[in-house]
């Protein structure tokens, strides 16, 4: 069962909280994730279509002459998150290429398609809400921001509302 070699959730919660606390103490801000994905996407788009992206007023904040879209704290932080995931999984003996799915067998493309679709929804949502579960819920929640608590409650609400629709994927 997946519980093997996973930390006790309460211990893990405290550990995660200490990392977050360290981030506040060292940097004065919390952790994040979606901002880096946004920057990476804009950077990639700028390489492919510099004119379209460069002249878009929304993207002009990020790219343009003399600006490096990847020169950002979040980008380096998420690089660290990736490496932390690698080392965490490897040292627990579960670094393995594969596709994770629920107990019901389903075609790989179906699972990957759902992952992509969910990702797209979250990408839009994270831009709209100015952060994701890391940047808004976790970080903003810890400094008691009203909007972050609203966001967090709505994430759980959205998850529980949509869960029956995709039940076949997970149960």
């Amino acid at each position: 069962m997946p519980h093997q070699k996973l930390w006790n959730p309460y211990v893990a919660g405290v550990a995660l909280g200490l990392v977050l606390l360290a981030s506040f103490l060292v940097m004065g801000n919390g952790l994040g994730a979606s901002g880096a994905a946004n920057r990476a996407a804009i950077g990639a788009a700028y390489v492919v279509a510099p004119d379209t992206v460069g002249h878009d007023p929304y993207f002009a904040k990020y790219v343009g002459p003399g600006k490096n879209v990847l020169d950002d704290w979040l980008v380096f932080e998420v690089l660290g998150v990736f490496l932390g995931g690698v080392v965490g999984a490897y040292s627990a003996g579960r670094l393995r290429r594969g596709i994770l799915m629920g107990p019901r067998p389903m075609p790989a493309w179906g699972r990957l398609g759902l992952a992509l679709a969910g990702g797209i929804l979250m990408g839009v949502a994270a831009r709209l809400a100015r952060g994701c579960t890391s940047g808004q819920a976790l970080t903003g929640g810890s400094v008691l921001s009203l909007g972050s608590w609203v966001f967090m409650m709505m994430v759980f609400a959205g998850g529980y509302l949509a869960a029956p629709l995709v039940r076949r994927q997970w149960r």
Binding site: G118, L121, V124, A125, A126, F151, M152, M154, A157
Partner: peptide, 8 residues
């Protein structure tokens, strides 16, 4: 955004 992210 929270609702949408929950669905995603």
């Amino acid at each position: 955004g929270g609702l949408l992210l929950g669905v995603g």
